[in-house]
Design a protein around this nucleic acid. Sequence first.
DNA 1: CAATGATTGTAGAAATATTACAATTTACGA
DNA 2: TCGTAAATTGTAATATTTCTACAATCATTG
Lengths: 111, 111
Amino acid sequence: MSTNEPLDLWLLDVELLKKLVVGIGEVSEITGVPQRQIRYWEEKGIIRAVKEGEGTTRKYDYLSIKKILLVKELLDDGYTLDAAAKKVEDRMRTVTEVFKKLADRTETANE
Amino acid sequence: MSTNEPLDLWLLDVELLKKLVVGIGEVSEITGVPQRQIRYWEEKGIIRAVKEGEGTTRKYDYLSIKKILLVKELLDDGYTLDAAAKKVEDRMRTVTEVFKKLADRTETANE
DNA sequence: CAATGATTGTAGAAATATTACAATTTACGA
DNA sequence: TCGTAAATTGTAATATTTCTACAATCATTG
């Protein structure tokens, strides 16, 4: 399927992707979930922001945004917030695993 | 090499990746290039930020950050800023192409 | 209806980022 | 060494974005 694997790997640069954390405003724009709601979900322990220190602003990484999108989807499907959270948890486990594997692969391949 | 291609593709979600734009502070942290310098490079037309409207803050996407990292590397190697910019331009052309291909692939595979 | 879950509103303060003007440093050929 | 253009850096005043905290509003269901 892939005819140029090395370039693909270079392009992905999962290490960089992991560092890409965006502000709540952006996340809201991207996902369509209001800032207020995102903070609320965080309050409830469903989402976790990457705080970089005390008295700073929230930052969200790729996986968190993915998670927010999933929760939103499930809510639209009629799930309860807690139920959605639980279901998403399972899904994220798999994703995170693949993410790690991918990271390992590119880590050794990229330099 | 990849034993679980569908999941990999789902994980990548290039569409999402394209929307991931981060503030200049983050970019500075990630790349190690001072904010001031990033703005300067932009002034010179080497970097391009994704402004989301008039009178708003700068945002940078994955490829821009990649670019900043490349420029920085070349500068450290003794290149002139203009020379570095030119060299990076070539490299980015390839990257952008692959990026597009990747996007096409996942676009059709993900929903 | 009452109670719980989920969301939304907002003021005032804190954190981040912007612009614009200017100074400083570096590299290098005359 | 001097001049000069390139490159970087400093910063004050202003603008934008985000934070917290307290509270109100809907919706669902027993």
